[in-house]
């Protein structure tokens, strides 16, 4: 039988939902963010380990914890895979559109989930800069 979720979500969203990448906490994270609100249903927490190498800053590691729908989990997983290992200034340029595209698209009603994960990354980077 055809799963109804296959009509709503792309295969990539379902893949990331069922087997998310970079799930969990980083014990020695030097940047964190918490976005969303349990009232609205989605809460996303990001942990980043940012290191300096040759005068450049890199995201050495990134992990997420998310309470939310399939799309919220998939966008969390996707943003971590998109920016892990990237230079900080490159990572900052990742937009909600890029996240949605990397997932093979999101249903319009779920687009706010990609906005939330982009916001989480920006907030975590700001957290890092303020604490430097």
């Amino acid at each position: 039988m055809e799963d109804i979720f296959q009509k709503i979500y792309s295969p990539k969203v379902l893949k990331h939902m069922k087997n998310p990448k970079n799930m969990g906490k980083i014990a020695d994270a030097n940047a964190q963010s918490l976005v969303g609100n349990p009232h609205c249903g989605d809460v996303m927490k990001l942990y980043l380990k940012i290191i300096k190498n040759g005068g450049q800053e890199y995201i050495k590691d990134i992990k997420f914890q998310t309470l939310g729908c399939g799309a919220a989990i998939a966008t969390s997983s996707m943003i971590t895979t998109l920016v892990k290992g990237k230079r900080l200034d490159e990572a900052e340029k990742v937009t909600e559109k890029a996240i949605a595209e990397a997932l093979g698209g999101l249903p319009p009603i779920k687009f706010h989930c990609s906005v939330l994960s982009a916001e989480a990354l920006k907030k975590a980077i700001a957290d890092y800069r303020s604490g430097k």
Partner: peptide, 16 residues
């Protein structure tokens, strides 16, 4: 397992 610890959230959001 995927979700943030709810007890941590209770501190972050006054609504719950």
């Amino acid at each position: 397992e995927m979700a943030p610890d709810l007890s941590e959230l209770r501190g972050a959001f006054a609504t719950i």
